[in-house]
Nucleic acid binder design. Structure first.
Lengths: 206, 206, 206, 206
DNA sequence: CATGAATGAGCCTTCATTCAT
DNA sequence: TATGAATGAAGGCTCATTCAT
């Protein structure tokens, strides 16, 4: 297996790359992309400046990679959860379970700082990170999937389409996360989310 | 200076200050705070670089002033509208009218770019702009005021408090605006907002 | 005359600009364009690095300006001399006088180092300095003018056109200057030039 | 090592060396010495960066070796041709034949780009390439050899020495080549050279 | 010999701020 | 007040060279 095994030099190199990547990550979470310097990154990583450019083409590349990684991680976690739910669970319960799960993942796995990073990216114009766009589409699809499974029982009298509802639910979720990111005093995302979506589901059902 | 009339010298100075301020405003709307330079500002204003520092202590000062102004303006517009509504209007109609008005003001008066500016500020850590915090409080107060006026009819069976509901409604509003700012394809804020809050009010009323 | 007089500040600024320009000039003569650094230039000029960019847009701009200046200076000197020659002087004497004058100007006014700079520019691809091209055209024109004035007596039997001859004489002149620039041991440009062109004129006349 | 056969290891090494050397050559022809990087060279050669320093002490060493090779190659070509000419050919015809041959070799064997490389080297100070100096001496010697063979018939009345004439003829040749290198529009070196030297020989003979 | 990760000095340029006029 | 030349600390990035594997 000469291909699959990494030589100690390759391992070393990968470690250096990781050190740089992680240092960058920590710094970007706390600060603007622009205000973080390559000097800071390499100092934190304990490597020479040149090493940064051995492993990455530019500062921007690291930013984009970072964001893509984040988005991917968020997505994967949600999807696997959704698949694990009992099929015969009522749609509204399923939906609330998903909402609850999202809150948990955000709070415990991703963290407030990382999400702030993600939201900041979307409000800045410079970086055109494809993954961030797909991220929203995926969240929308998950919501839509649950809603469509039993739209009749969820919204018996509604004039809105399932797509419409899904989109609005995504919007609400964004408001919740934005608030959560911005608030300095602690805010229990899960409780807030459940209260809000419960209200929405009721309104929808009416 | 015993009178409040300005000498021509003072008038001139005020004009210079305004020119700089407005140039800065236009540039900050279109670009990151960091990427806008003092050079750009004074060039657009048609004054010398030194003049900038005659009127402002630093670039950051201008940014903070700008944000404070924005927040104040947004607030004022909403409040005066709320006062103009008929007192005997039902609470839910009043609320939806306010929601509609907010959408109008945002779309027509403030503009998407300006709102993005405002939201960006909140996701960045550097600037500690007190006004932005108060801004949310004011929006919250308006919502609360309408809700409290007739909480009984709005939420006859709800276990949530009026404060709780008001807070959540603010959150939803934030989600809507965030989405509106971020979406590239046009999104009709007013329609979306009315649909969403109608659903919420129904859910609350149940 | 408020326009025409320079304030002491403007004079100061101009002096700084000159200091930088001249420092750059001296350094470029002795070294490659690429190997001369802005740091070297400002250190030699005794100003801060930023001052360089107050007066010049980039390092390349200075190089282009420098070359243009050189070419212009060379041209002007020759032309005014040519105009000063007696009209009834025989064509071959006139030509030799011009050749002699060129040698004098190059030796005494321009200097070997500067000419080397000029020739180097032409062998490098990067810089597209319009003036250098026009420079050759002008030298050619001067030669052509003298030759055409009395082509019959200069080349009674030649099958070559006056244009052809002028071009070749320019070529020879280039060879002379190139040699002069490259040789380390002193070479008397004037004597060499006169000997060579005398030979050429004789050959042409035959 | 008692024999001159190379082990396969040594052959491999020599090949690597050649690959690097040739890649460097191609790059230096098209670009400034300074702007060509070791990275570019090894990438083009398809070897690792370290291999470059196994075979060469520095980038500068490669440049010097390259230039020496060029000069040597140019020389050899001329010399062998000169030896092949009929002994009883008249001196002026012999000289023109040599001139023609030089033009041919330059145009067809060496190429404009390579010659520009060679001329550029001479106008730069950094590199003190001994061979370049010897190169001129050799060209001079060839010219001198032809001229001296029958100086009486070539320059019956001239006050100049054979050495003097040879030197001037080299100078003219340089002018021709310089022009040829610099001109963008095509210029037929051979025709130009023959015309010019014919003129010179006539003038010399007068 | 071959490799390529690691190094760090150095490059050009930007920019907020200062200050003499 | 108004000016704009002057400053110098960073900033992102390049690249010849070294060296452990």
């Amino acid at each position: 297996m000469t291909d699959n095994t990494l030589s100690s030099r390759q391992k070393q190199a990968l470690q250096t790359r990781e050190k740089i990547y992680e240092s960058a990550e920590e710094l970007f979470i706390e600060n603007d992309f622009e205000s973080v310097t390559v000097d800071q990154i390499v100092k934190k990583a304990g490597v020479a400046k040149g090493s940064f450019y051995v492993h990455f083409a530019s500062k921007d590349e690291v930013i984009v990679l970072l964001i893509n990684d984040y988005v991917e991680k968020v997505d994967t976690d949600y999807k696997s959860f959704l698949d694990s739910l009992a099929e015969d669970m009522p749609a509204d319960e399923k939906f609330l379970a998903l909402v609850e799960k999202i809150a948990e993942v955000l709070t415990e796995n991703i963290g407030k700082e990382n999400m702030r990073l993600l939201y900041r990216v979307q409000l800045e114009k410079k970086l055109n990170v494809s993954s961030v766009i797909s991220y929203d589409r995926d969240l929308y699809k998950m919501f839509l999937q649950v809603i469509e499974e039993d739209f009749e029982s969820l919204a018996p009298h509604s004039s809105l389409s399932a797509e419409n509802v899904a989109r609005q639910f995504v919007t609400v979720y964004r408001g919740l996360v934005f608030d959560w990111c911005v608030r300095t005093r602690e805010l229990d995302l899960k409780t807030e989310a459940l209260d809000l979506y419960e209200m929405l589901l009721k309104g929808l059902n009416e």
